[in-house]
Design a protein around this nucleic acid. Structure first.
Lengths: 348, 348
DNA sequence: GCGACCTACTGTATCGGTAAAGATCTGTAC
DNA sequence: GTACAGATCTTTACCGATACAGTAGGTCGC
C-alpha cells in the first residue's frame, strides 16, 4: 500500500493538507466536527501521526537532546553514579517533551569510518558529561552552534556548567581522617586519562577531589601515599589497592576516588587479613548504593546526583530559550561527608 | 549571518548543489580536486555537514534506534542489570552507525499532555525492554510499522525476541538449596506490576524465575513461603524481607528475585542477628556487581547481560535489512548458577 | 571513424511536513 | 447598512537535503 501522508488524508476528506496538519498539531484551528472526521479518516487509512523526521525539518526542532560521553558507554555505565545521572536527565527531559539520545565518541568505539554522532545525529542541544576535554566531539557540537551544558566537566567559557563541590567534599573526607588521628594516609586516585596540549590532564572530579584531599592533609602536615588506578580493566583497582596496603609502612586509612574503588580496596584489605575499620579506615566517594551494600557500610561523600541531572536540563532549557547571549551560568552543587562504619580512630 | 546550506556552498564554488552533496556523502562521485575546493569553501563558510534532520527526511533513514522502557527511567536504571544492557545496546548500535534514543512511557512520567515519545520521536527501529505488556507505547511502535525486537519481554508474534532462560537458572538455584538439604525455603519475588485484561500479570523474568523455583522445589516436595516486593520505594524490600525472616518458622534459605533484593535481605538477616550462610542461605539472581561487593559474596544466577544487548541489535539489524517477513527469530540465552559464599548446608 | 562506455557533473522531482498570510463566511456592534 | 472581529479553512512558500535520470566530454577497441 502507498504510504499514508497528510496529503492522502486530505484528499480522502476533501480538505487541504494544511487543515489535516492542523487537526493533528493545532486542534484549535479548525472545527471540532471536521477534526473528528479527519481523525477518523486518518485512523481508517492507518495513519499514525505526522512523520517526526519531516516535522523536525519543517519546524527546525528535532525533539531530542544529546548526551555526550567520550568513553565507551559500557565503561561509563559501569558506574552507578553515571547511570543515576543519566536517568535523572532522561526523566527531566521527558517532562519537557524531549527525548534523550546517547552520543559516543565515534572512532573510539568501533563506529563505521566517517560516522561521528556528535556531527551526524539530529538534536536540539546537548549535555557534555565527563569527557576528554580535548575531545573533537565537543568541537563538533560547538561548531553546529547547538546549545550546550557541561556537567562534571571543566567549565567552558561559552556554555553553562554544572559541577559538584568535589573539592569541599574531599576536604571533609580527609579532615575526618585527620580528626580520627590518622597520620599515615593512602590515596587511591583515578589515573590520569587525558592529554591536553601534550600535558596529562585530569577531569574535573579527579582533579578537584585530589585537591580537596591534599588541602586537608597538607594543613595537618600529612604527606599521603598516592596511587592511581583506572576503572578498567576490572583487576586494575585490586592490583593498585594491594600495592597500597601490602607494604611495611601500610597506611592506617585510605581515601578512595569512588565507592567502587573503596569496595574493592575493602576486599583487598580483608583478603590480607586486615579488619575494617579497626586495622584500616576506608573512605569512598559518591555515596552510591554500593556504599550501603558493602559491609561494613562505607563512610563516603554524598553528592546529589539526581539534582545534577535536573540542573543540567534546567540550564539547557534556559540556554535554548534565550536568543541573545547572557551571562553564562555556573552551578556548584554541594557534597557532604556521610560517616558510616568503615572509619574508626587510628590506633597508633 | 544567513544559514549555510549546500546551496550557499554550491553558489560560492560555482557548482550545482548536488555536487556539493556528493562531496560530503559520496566522495567517489566527483574529482578529488573539486572535492577539496568544495570542502575548503564549506569550511570557510562555517558549514558543519549536511543537516541531519533534512538528511533524515530525504533518505528516509533517521540514524537512531529507540529503546522503550515503560517504567520511569530513574526506576529502571536503579538496576545495574538494566544499565549494563543499555550500554551494550548502545555500543553495538554505535558500531552500526546508529545512535540510541531513550523512550519512556509518556504520561507516567509527567510528560506534557499529548507527547508520546513512541509516536513522536524519529527512529528507524526500536527495542522493547521489559515493559508493561499492555503498554500503549508498544502499540504505537507497531502501528508505525517500525522494526521491533523485544528483550526480557513476552515474545510477540510479529517481532523477534531475546530472552534469558530465567526458568532454567531459577530451577538450578532452587535445586542447589534442595541439594544442600534445605526444606524451609522462602521466596522473595517481584510483585506483580501489570494488568492484562484485568488480570494481574508478571513480566517475563518475574514469571519465569518463579516457575523455575517452583519446579525444583515442587519436585522435592517443598512448599515455599512466598512474599513479593516492589523495587520502589527503597524500603519495600526491607519490609518484606523482615516479614519473611522475622517469624517462628523462619526459612533456612531464601531465593531472591535479584541480587539487589538479596543484598537487602542479607542486611535484614544480619540486623536480626542471623549469620549468612550459617543461619540463613541466600541466593540472588543476575550476578551483578552487587553480588561480588556483598559480604559474604552472593551465590546467584549469572546471565550474560551484554550478549543480550548484542543479540538484540543483531536481530534488529536483521529485521531492518529484510523486506519480506520471514520466520520470527527467538533467542534464549543461558543462565547458570554461580555458587559463592552465601549458601551453606541446612543445619536442621 | 563510430558506437560503447566511462567519468564527472547537473536538473528535476521529491521527502512529509509547518509557518504565515490570505480568503470566506458569520455574527455583531453601532 | 457597514464595518470589524473571529472562526475556519486554503494558498503559497519554504525546511535542507537526497535519488535518479540525464548530459557533455573524453577514451577505447577494432
Amino acid at each position: 500500500m502507498a504510504k499514508v501522508t497528510l496529503q492522502s488524508i486530505a484528499d480522502r476528506v476533501g480538505v487541504s493538507r494544511m487543515t489535516v496538519s492542523n487537526a493533528f498539531s493545532r486542534p484549535d484551528q479548525l472545527s471540532a466536527e471536521l477534526r473528528e472526521r479527519i481523525l477518523a479518516a486518518a485512523d481508517e487509512l492507518g495513519y499514525v501521526g505526522p512523520d517526526p523526521a519531516a516535522r523536525a525539518l519543517a519546524r527546525g526542532k528535532v525533539g531530542s537532546i544529546g548526551l555526550l560521553l567520550t568513553d565507551e558507554l559500557s565503561q561509563a555505565f559501569q558506574d552507578h553514579v553515571a547511570t543515576e545521572f543519566l536517568s535523572s536527565v532522561a526523566d527531566a527531559l521527558t517532562r519537557e517533551g524531549l527525548a534523550l539520545t546517547l552520543l559516543t565518541s565515534g572512532d573510539a568505539t568501533g563506529a563505521p569510518a566517517g560516522y561521528v554522532p556528535a556531527r551526524d545525529v539530529a538534536m536540539d542541544g546537548a549535555i557534555v558529561y565527563i569527557c576528554d576535554p580535548a575531545s573533537p566531539e565537543i568541537g563538533w557540537l560547538e561548531r553546529r552552534g547547538l546549545p550546550l551544558v557541561s556537567v562534571d566537566h571543566d567549565p567552558s567559557p561559552n556554555a553553562p556548567s554544572i559541577n559538584v563541590d568535589d573539592r569541599g567534599g574531599a576536604r571533609a573526607a580527609a579532615q575526618h581522617l585527620v580528626d580520627l588521628g590518622h597520620r599515615r594516609v593512602g590515596i587511591l586516585a583515578l589515573e590520569t586519562q587525558y592529554q591536553v596540549d601534550g600535558q596529562p590532564s585530569w577531569n574535573w572530579p579527579a582533579r578537584e577531589r585530589m585537591a580537596g584531599w591534599m588541602e586537608a592533609l597538607g594543613a595537618a602536615g600529612i604527606e599521603p601515599v598516592v596511587k592511581a588506578a583506572r576503572w578498567r580493566p576490572s583487576g586494575a583497582v585490586v592490583t593498585t589497592a594491594r600495592e597500597l596496603l601490602d607494604r611495611p609502612d601500610r597506611p592506617s586509612a585510605v581515601l578512595c576516588f569512588s565507592d567502587a574503588f573503596a569496595v574493592e580496596t575493602m576486599q583487598v584489605a580483608q583478603s590480607l587479613g586486615l579488619r575494617v575499620p579497626e586495622d584500616l579506615s576506608i573512605v569512598g566517594f559518591d555515596d552510591s548504593p554500593l556504599a550501603v551494600a558493602a559491609s561494613p557500610q562505607l563512610t563516603t561523600v554524598h553528592q546529589e546526583v539526581s539534582s545534577k541531572g535536573k540542573e543540567a536540563v534546567r540550564a539547557l532549557m534556559s540556554v535554548m530559550a534565550t536568543t541573545e547571549p547572557g551571562p553564562v551560568e555556573r552551578v556548584l552543587l554541594p557534597a557532604s561527608l556521610v560517616v558510616r562504619e568503615s572509619t574508626a580512630p587510628a590506633r597508633d
